[in-house]
Structures are given as C-alpha cells and as structure tokens.
Amino acid sequence: MTEADWPRVWPFFDEIVQAGETYAYPLDLTSEQARELWTMRPPGQTVVMGEVGEVLGSATMGPNRPGRGSHVGTASFMVSPAARGRGVGRALGEYVVQWHRDAGFDAIQFNAVVETNTVAVRLWQSLGFSIIGTVPRAYESRTHGRVGLHVMHLDLGEPR
C-alpha cells in the first residue's frame, strides 16, 4: 500500500469499523489515526487489491508479537462492501499465507475473529486455519450483543 492508496482505503475502513460487527477499533478515529493503526511497518507489510482506479480490499500482516514471539505471524483484512462476493478476501488471504511462508514464519495466528463473522470464519477454515479457542463475550457486536472472539491458527510447517 502506498500513501496514495490510503484515501481509497479510508472510506471502507471507516464504514466497516462504524458497522460494529468485525473490528474493535474506536469509532471516533480520524483518517490519520486509522492509517497508523492499519499500516504495518517492516518487517510487516500492508497491501491493497484493486482494479483500475478502485481499491477493493486491504490486508496488513507481520509478526504477531515482537522478539521471542516473532516467528508467528498475524494479519487483518478488510474488503470494501462494494467488492464483497468477488473473491477479494480469498485472494488477500492466499497472498497473506504465501507471504508468511516466504518470510519464514512458522505459523499464523489470528487473535480476534468475531464468531458471528461466519463468512470470514469459513474462509479462514477453507485456507487451513483452525479455531483453537474462543474468548466468550469478548466483542460487543452492534447486531448480536456480546459475542465470542475466535483465536485461529495455521501451522506453516517445520520451524525455521
């Protein structure tokens, strides 16, 4: 993702956060604050997927924890509501898995997948992720009230 991409990411980032179903970000973020939260610095990476003049989705990825936990990666994804059902999430997910493999990570851990976000849960499971635990009532869904957050994991093979 380049600086020039952010103005095309911000509208759907804000729409998704305001919807209150998938991300626990504060509702009053400015564009600049949101960009700081979303953009991963090296050794991580933030990417966009798009068509001519349009950003369809974005993913951010890198180490889940610093130091002694940095061999396990993590990622977050947002797909523009206008682009849903077009394979954007799957393409970003496949990219993220391969990026982590190429970078030598041992595994990927998603720390907080909202259990009512069934489209995302099914997608990650289809890419090989397992639910290894659920924190009960850890997310305040605008529609469903307090729901669980899944911790999801993908083993990428032998340790480096």
Rank of each mutant, 00 (worst) to 15 (best):
V9E: 03
W10Q: 01
W10T: 01
P11F: 09
P11R: 10
P11K: 03
P11Y: 09
F12A: 03
F13S: 05
D14V: 13
D14G: 11
E15P: 11
Q18L: 13
A19M: 10
G20T: 10
E21Q: 13
T22Y: 08
T22G: 14
T22F: 12
Y23W: 15
L27A: 13
D28C: 01
L29W: 07
L29S: 05
S31F: 06
S31P: 00
E32L: 09
Q33V: 03
A34L: 06
A34T: 01
A34M: 07
R35A: 11
R35Y: 07
E36D: 14
E36L: 13
E36V: 14
M40Y: 09
M40S: 15
R41K: 13
Q45P: 01
Q45W: 07
Q45E: 15
T46G: 00
T46C: 03
V47P: 05
V48P: 01
M49F: 15
G50R: 01
E51V: 11
V52T: 12
E54R: 15
E54T: 14
G57P: 02
S58C: 11
A59T: 01
A59Q: 06
G62R: 06
P63C: 04
P63S: 08
P63E: 01
P66K: 11
G67S: 09
G67D: 08
G69P: 01
G69Y: 05
S70E: 14
G73M: 03
G73I: 01
G73K: 00
T74V: 05
A75R: 00
S76P: 02
V79S: 09
V79N: 09
S80W: 08
P81A: 08
A82F: 09
A83H: 12
A83Q: 07
R84W: 00
G85M: 05
R86A: 07
V88I: 13
V88H: 07
G89D: 09
G89I: 07
R90P: 03
A91I: 03
G93R: 04
G93I: 04
G93Y: 04
E94S: 10
V96C: 10
V96N: 01
V97I: 12
Q98W: 11
Q98T: 14
H100K: 01
H100L: 03
R101M: 02
R101H: 08
D102Q: 12
A103P: 03
A103R: 14
A103H: 12
F105D: 02
D106A: 10
A107C: 03
A107K: 01
A107H: 02
I108N: 00
Q109S: 05
Q109M: 11
F110Y: 09
F110M: 15
A112W: 00
A112I: 04
V113T: 10
V114Q: 01
V114K: 06
V114P: 03
T116H: 10
T118F: 10
A120V: 12
V121L: 07
V121T: 09
V121W: 02
V121I: 08
L123Q: 08
L123V: 06
W124H: 06
W124M: 08
S126N: 10
S126F: 03
L127A: 04
F129N: 02
F129D: 02
S130D: 15
I131Q: 02
T134Y: 02
V135F: 13
V135M: 14
R137D: 15
R137T: 13
A138M: 04
A138L: 11
S141F: 03
R142F: 10
T143W: 05
H144D: 13
H144Y: 15
